[in-house]
Amino acid sequence: MAVTTEAELEELATKASWYDKLKVFMRQQPLGAIGGGIVLLMVLMALFADFLAPYDPELNAFEFMLVAPSWEFILGTDQFGRDLLSRIVYGARTALFVGFTSAFIGSFIGLVLGVGSAYFGGKIDLIFQRVMDIFMAFPLIIMALAVVAIFGTGIQNVIIAITIPFIPRCARVVRSTALSIREIPYIDAARALGYSHIRIILRHMVPNVMAPFLIMITAFVGQAILLEASLSYLGLGVQEPTPAWGLMLQGGAEEYAESAPWVAVWPGVAISLAVFGFNLFGDAIRDVLDPRLRSQ
């Protein structure tokens, strides 16, 4: 990968047009650019699903059960005669909706808690850290499954189940950055001016921890998509007939693996590609925003 030269940095700083920035980004982060392209493609697919999908994704057509890929059904059909391509296109909507919503809510709550904990410090911070430790003792999917056990299945509950384990993970990273910001005199100055705690947290501290926050969000979206797919695959996530990639693999993908491999292959390709894209893009964002983390 090309090393950032002084000249390129200068170029970036002086010419601030987004087109030039994009060009520099693509030159320095070719893998990140590919990831960004995949992400963009997924977003477009989700937004324009109504125009892109050739058929209704929930329409059962028993005369077309398990049809092999052909011109009529480009990726074939499943055991209920539903068009796989249409279900994958609409599945992008489900995946991105769950992914973005839970990543944003989870990291936002984590952001506020993390910064708050660092700001108040002392006993509050100590207790908060212990509570976060407890939450972190649950592996991601175990926690998500426990939440599903409480709230039940369905898309809304899946979002809750994925959001909750993200909160402590984001809070911890944000807190460590916020701790160093708290020591900078301008926070004391803000206190001296009589600003309220909430104002200082939101207006003075939060903007300064944006870099780790954005890095967490991009990492979370990919993880959330994967987690949603896993939960749906286990029958504990999004429920039929909503098109969701994980769910498409649950309904007999193994049973028909031999006679109709396309049922098992395409949804997995979609999941992998989406997560792959978000991970590459997230890595590139991290490199650009926070060079100190590059070695990790």
């Binding site: 990919g222 797919a229 693999l249 098992a264």
Partner: peptide, 12 residues
């Protein structure tokens, strides 16, 4: 490896 869900890898 991170992107591929392990259950899908299993099916494959």
């Amino acid at each position: 490896g991170i992107a591929m869900p392990s259950f899908w890898l299993g099916i494959i």
